[in-house]
Design a protein around this nucleic acid. Structure first.
Length: 357
DNA sequence: CACCCGTGGCA
DNA sequence: TTGCCAAGGGT
């Protein structure tokens, strides 16, 4: 046990938050909250799922588009799968979008269209894990639950100068965070720790001089803050190779393929193509045609490998009968429906056509 | 429990 | 250019 008592107090952080809270589309700030305004649980849930491993800057536009198109959880539950996947395209981690729909439909079917107001109830829903269940509990329902995300882990590791590497240190950091969580204003507090981690207690060059917890912070006094939290080394990413076939029919329709729900880019639209492996891919087009190389490869890095994707393009006749995929006209396909790697392939293919497309 | 699962920004 | 990082969850 770390016998040292941390003197950090939630009140000091809340005082800081009252002045420095960031404004966000899904957030009810401390002032409005004091006036009794509570955030819509649907919007809290949607924002928290979008924010999983994703930056605020990347989420903003997606959140606006989703809430404009589907203002309530019932609207979202009634949406077509392909519409939700297309709207999520580019945000990454597509299992989140699949679980988002499952969750919305479960809330409507099993909970009368209202998100459960307990951590346990929330935890039972698809796509809601320990962090998100606590976040919705605290932010939407003002329950005194402890949120532990990357920000909180970093802040706690520094406050206590804990050098045990993640993920080993996770349970201890969770316990530290729980001890600090106040009974009053748990929603504001949860967001305050995350704002602190995002703006002051940043991964590199933290601004310790203006931190509301600079006095009790052990890592600050020891000069170790910038190197915490420690993390286990990561495995190198191998390079995989593949081929994608961008076929355009005479009427302007493209030959596309819906990917299976499980695995990489599950449920998303993509171009027919080879497997992606560390060996040279087999060149097997989805339909016989005059395929030509686009002259440039799409380079893309996924979570655990680098991909170099060769692009083949072809003009296809109206009578073409491909082995795989389906033709989608402009009415059923927008380039923005594609995950980023597929959009890169599309852009390269387009550039390779003299007449553009 | 180890592994799988995206993307864009930034030093 | 490369590596690191961001409000994690599912299996």
């Amino acid at each position: 046990m770390n016998g040292e008592m941390i003197r950090a107090e939630a009140g000091d952080l809340l005082d800081w938050y009252d002045v420095h809270a960031r404004e966000m589309p899904w957030r009810v700030g401390p002032s409005a909250r004091r006036d009794g305004i509570r955030p819509d649980p649907y919007r809290v849930w949607l924002s928290e799922v979008m924010l999983q491993q994703t930056t605020v800057a990347a989420v903003r536009d997606y959140f606006h588009r989703f809430t404009a198109r589907w203002p309530t959880v019932a609207d979202l539950a009634a949406a077509a799968d392909e519409d939700v996947m297309g709207e999520w395209a580019g945000l990454g981690y597509y299992a989140r979008a699949r679980n988002l729909l499952k969750c919305a439909r479960a809330v409507v079917a099993d909970h009368g269209g209202v998100f459960p107001a307990t951590r346990e109830g929330l935890l039972s829903l698809p796509g809601i894990g320990p962090y998100t269940a606590s976040a919705i509990s605290a932010i939407a329902y003002d329950l005194p639950e402890t949120v532990v995300d990357g920000n909180v882990e970093r802040v706690m590791a520094r406050l206590h100068d804990l050098h045990v590497p993640l993920p080993t240190a996770k349970p201890e950091l969770t316990e530290m965070a729980a001890r600090l969580t106040p009974d009053a204003r748990p929603g504001d507090y949860a967001q305050a720790v995350m704002d602190l981690g995002a703006t002051i207690c940043t991964p590199k060059s933290p601004a310790c001089g203006i931190c509301p917890w600079r006095d009790p912070c052990v890592a600050r006094s020891n000069g170790t803050a910038p190197e915490l939290p420690k993390k286990l080394p990561k495995k190198p990413k191998p390079i995989r190779l593949g081929i994608a076939y961008v076929g355009r029919r005479a009427d302007g329709a493209f030959l596309l393929q819906r990917r299976p729900d499980k695995g990489l880019l599950g449920g998303m639209l993509g171009w027919p193509g080879s497997d992606w492996a560390e060996t040279v891919p087999q060149d097997t087009p989805p339909v016989a045609a005059q395929w030509r190389d686009a002259g440039a490869e799409a380079r893309h890095t996924f979570t655990h490998f680098h991909l170099r994707l060769a692009i083949r393009v072809a003009d296809l006749p109206m009578g073409a009968e491909p082995d795989t995929g389906e033709f989608l006209g402009p009415d059923r396909f927008r380039p923005s429906d594609l995950p980023t790697v597929m959009r890169k392939a599309f852009d390269l293919a387009r550039a390779s056509f003299k007449d553009g497309f």
